[in-house]
Write a protein that binds this DNA or RNA. Sequence first.
RNA 1: GUGACCAUGGUGUAAUGGUCAGCACGGCAGUCUGUGGAACUGCCAGCGAGGGUUCGAAUCCCUCUGGUCACCCCA
Length: 440
Amino acid sequence: MSQKKTNQKTSLVKSRFQIPRGMKDILPEEMPYWQWVFEKAKNLLEYYGFSRVETPILEKADLFYKGTGKQSDLVKKEMYLLKTKESGEILALRPEGTLPIARVYCQYGLFNKPQPVKLYYFGPFFRHEKPQLGRYREFYQLGWEIIGENSPVLDAQIINIGYNFLEEIGFKNKEILIYLNSLGCEKCQNNYLTALKKYYRPKLKKVCSNCRERYQKNPLRMLDCKDEKCLKIKKEAPSPLDFLCSDCKNHFQMVLDYLDSLKIDYYLDKNLVRGLDYYTRTVFEFNIKNHDSKMAIGGGGRYDGLLKSISRIDKPALGMAFGVERVIEALKERKISIPKKEPEIFLIQIGQPAKKEALRLIEVLRKNNIEVRENLAKENVKNQLEIANRLGVKYCLILGQEEINEGMVIFKDMTSGIQENLPIEGIEEFLKRRLKINNQ
RNA sequence: GUGACCAUGGUGUAAUGGUCAGCACGGCAGUCUGUGGAACUGCCAGCGAGGGUUCGAAUCCCUCUGGUCACCCCA
């Protein structure tokens, strides 16, 4: 009978109440990675003068339609949409971070503040794709944007910060790969597209079916094709770099100059096209050398025309974002260990009066910033010592009836096993001294 | 969205269509009612869900769910 009951219970847990597809719980074992990544990023970005903003998970779907171009897959088939009850307005679970930030800049008149405006964000995004490793329906992005200036030095700085971020969280310089390209301004892009189509038109019969489709809808993406037939044709294809106007060429050259002076290595990749249509001029991606996944862990670029496409404000801007799950997966793959805070003291209690005293003592220690672990629900000493041992604490405090009667507490060194009887009164001062000596 | 492969306790795994689904780790407890790191003993906990074939299904078939990989695309 009871057997049946538990079976039912587990099957409910396993089927009906499973987490939805593509979503992921972050469990305590993994949380230190998240905190590590976020802390490092926060310190770095705030050093460079970025302020954190968080925008709602829901935005009007139109924001993304207008901003990314209606033919992009991201809005065409990957957005989670929902209809509001009152007005029937269509809202979307945000699929990316740049447009909400652009919206904030326009909505609150941040163009009236000293330019440029530097903002960063860290939060969940949603895309309805078929999940696999490194690709989830809910994923976190850590991103930063600079809005309001078009100087190429900012392009270099954005990349520099991305590079420093990866270095800060533990990757070696030589592992960090940066791929760079320039798509040029709207004019260059049009000229280039014309040339690209002209090049491909007579070869359409030889390319894969995907590329034939791309030729119509989004010719730039043909540069991304991995089909063997297409690779050959792609080799001879015109490069966007050859179609840059003198301004854009200059801009790109300066970006490269700044990066060189920072001694940051990069690869020029004339086939690098980013998935979102709003990019202009500089685009780039970050990856880790020999990373299992070929997918980029981060990327970004300039989007000088984006603000104008969603508002009356015409300001240049640029930014980048990392996929937090992908960064953490790469960290784990590299076996990069993050510093873990080990507790140093465990408090053992025996009997009801000792539990009372333990509760009081914990408060004394907390007010003195002394970290203490315990397992108040346990009854016997052996048990609690085992737990303390597993936690790897250096010292135990032992409180029993005898000790309480005498106003004492046992202080036990877990390495040597030596114990001393000390007065409870003022034990916090003793512990502070002892821990201080250890930390020197 | 298309295609392929996979699914056994919390974790890692075993079981030619035929005993009560086995083992290890883990968790809880005891041997030892106030002293840990060891040993031994007991207990907890599983065939992802739903159908079908069969005398009999963890095993074969179908559907669903989930995962992984490639593509599309992307962080």
